[in-house]
Simulated assay, not measured.
Amino acid sequence: MENVILVNDNDEQVGVMEKMEVHQKALLHRAFSVFIFNEDGQMLLQQRAAKKYHSPKLWTNACCSHPRPGEPTEKAAQRRLREELGFHTELEKTFEFIYNAPFDNGLTEYEYDHVFTGFYEGDIKPNPAEVLDYCYMSMDEIAVSLQNYPHKYTVWFGIAFPRIMDWWKLKYAA
């Protein structure tokens, strides 16, 4: 049984509850999303494993999950990056957002999402229980694909991508 941290709109902890129950009841909880880039400014995307409890086989950012009770969010992001893709890199907190997305299976993601960015050049060792496939794509290629084929991407990726694109343009506009 895995517990997640219930929060209010200010990301203040208001409780702890079992993960599936939180998703069944559509309660706001703390989460994180990690976006990784290579030296060419391309973003690392992963295709979620076929057996994920929601959004199976959809493409998304490098990794995302929930910190455990008492676990700092950045440490949780590092942990999941290692668990899902088999590597470590420095992460920087970039922004936060709240989203609420119901799924066809009766579950809802209602998350206070902390977004981290990082850079990585090296071997990727995906965990097959988590990741079906992965690739690097340019930001422009992702923008076009997301516009033309939004059903191939996770809901949170579609929400976060425009903000990541704004951040990326500022970082690489020079």
Rank of each mutant, 00 (worst) to 15 (best):
E92W: 11
P126S: 06
K152M: 15
S33V: 04
A31G: 09
E21G: 05
N38M: 07
R79Y: 09
W168S: 11
Q13T: 11
I142H: 07
L45D: 02
S55V: 02
I36V: 14
M17R: 10
E92D: 13
N61P: 00
N148D: 15
E109N: 13
I159L: 11
S65F: 08
H66F: 10
N148H: 14
Q47V: 08
I98Y: 01
K57I: 09
K171F: 10
H66Q: 11
A31C: 08
Y112C: 06
E21A: 11
Y149I: 12
W168H: 15
R80A: 07
G15N: 02
K57Q: 14
R82V: 13
G118L: 03
F161G: 05
D40C: 09
K169I: 14
E74N: 07
D11R: 02
F95A: 09
D40R: 15
A62K: 02
K171T: 13
F116E: 03
C63G: 03
T154L: 09
Y99F: 15
V16R: 02
D140Y: 08
A26K: 01
E21P: 03
N127H: 04
F87Y: 12
P102W: 09
R68M: 10
Y112L: 03
Q147H: 15
V115N: 01
F87I: 08
F116V: 07
V14G: 01
A77L: 06
P150K: 09
A50F: 11
G158Q: 14
N127D: 10
K171R: 15
G41R: 05
E71A: 06
E21K: 12
I5M: 01
Y110R: 10
K125F: 10
H114K: 06
W59F: 05
K51A: 14
Y172V: 13
D113Q: 12
D11I: 00
A173M: 13
L85K: 04
L27Q: 07
L107T: 10
V155C: 10
Y120W: 08
K19H: 05
T89N: 08
D123M: 11
H23E: 10
L6P: 00
L6W: 00
Q47T: 07
W168D: 08
A49F: 04
P128L: 04
E12Q: 13
A143T: 14
G158R: 14
T94E: 13
T108L: 06
Y134Q: 04
R82H: 12
F119C: 11
A50I: 11
G158F: 10
R163T: 14
L28I: 01
H151A: 15
T73W: 00
L170Q: 14
Y53H: 13
Q13S: 12
L91N: 03
N105R: 08
G158A: 12
V131F: 01
Y110L: 05
Y99M: 08
F116S: 01
Y110W: 09
G118R: 02
A76N: 03
F157M: 15
W167N: 08
Q147G: 15
Q46M: 12
V34M: 05
L45P: 00
N3M: 05
L58C: 08
L45Q: 05
G86P: 04
M1Q: 06
I164H: 03
